[in-house]
Structure formats: structure tokens, C-alpha cells
């Protein structure tokens, strides 16, 4: 975040490329490093569920035995390394899935726009 604001005072603009690269670095640092310092307390919903006594109805997800379950890489002993690696893998997977989805949408979108060029709604 702070890297995005570090721009030349004269123009106060940065290239899209610089913005994207800074953003990617921020995301990787947040997920890979800062996440190790995140609060491990239950979140609002978990806390309320415990207080009101319905937390026991929660069931383990079918994904709970997966190699990345609960933001850790199974087999990596060091908790901080395990969590950081899991975070970076997650950021990468989200980037690939979202990037692929946007690519598909824009590809099919441009084809539709081309075939409906006379339609003002297109």
C-alpha cells in the first residue's frame, strides 16, 4: 500500500505496470510474511457461535484433510514458514483463477460486441 503512494511528486502518477507490480509485492508480503502475525483469536461469527452455544454444530469440511488445510503446508514443520508458504500459494492460485476468468470473459465479451456492433447496448 505504501509503495503505491511512493510516486514522483511532480506527476503523482505511476504506470499501470508499476502499480500492478507494487500491488503484487504487497499481496505476497501480506500473505507470506505479515500473516504470521495475524490474530489467532476466533472471528466474530465463531465467537458469537461459541457464546450462544451453536459452534458445536460446525462440521469439518471435506477439504479439512487437504495438503493446505487451515493455511498450512502439510509436511512443513516451521509454523511461520508453513503458513507463509500456504499464503503465497493461495495468492498465486487466486491470481491464476481470476486472471483466467477475466481473460475468458473479455474474449467472449469482445466476440459478442463484434457481432452486436449495431446494438447500442452491446
Amino acid at each position: 500500500m505504501s509503495t503505491e503512494t511512493a510516486t514522483e511528486p511532480k506527476t503523482r502518477r505511476i504506470s499501470t505496470r508499476t502499480l500492478i507490480i507494487s500491488g503484487v509485492i504487497v499481496a505476497i508480503v501480506l500473505a507470506g510474511l505479515i500473516s504470521g502475525f495475524a490474530s489467532s483469536h476466533p472471528d466474530g461469527l465463531e465467537y458469537v457461535a461459541e457464546q450462544l452455544g451453536f459452534h458445536s454444530t460446525a462440521q469439518d469440511s471435506a477439504a479439512a484433510t487437504g495438503p493446505l488445510a487451515d493455511y498450512g503446508v502439510s509436511g512443513v514443520e516451521n509454523a511461520r514458514l508453513s503458513g507463509g508458504l500456504a499464503g503465497i500459494i493461495g495468492v498465486a492460485v487466486v491470481a491464476v483463477v481470476m486472471g483466467g476468468l477475466v481473460w475468458l470473459l473479455r474474449r467472449s465479451g469482445s466476440r459478442q460486441t463484434a457481432t452486436r456492433a449495431t446494438d447500442p447496448e452491446a
Binding site: A27, V94, A95
Partner: peptide, 14 residues
């Protein structure tokens, strides 16, 4: 894509 990465990362930060 960038915002998706950021949202995922930020959701890890309780």
C-alpha cells in the same frame, strides 16, 4: 486479478 490477490491476502490478516 490484483484486487483478488489482495483480498485473499488481506483476509488472512485477522
Amino acid at each position: 486479478g490484483l484486487v483478488a490477490m489482495f483480498v485473499f491476502a488481506a483476509q488472512m490478516l485477522n
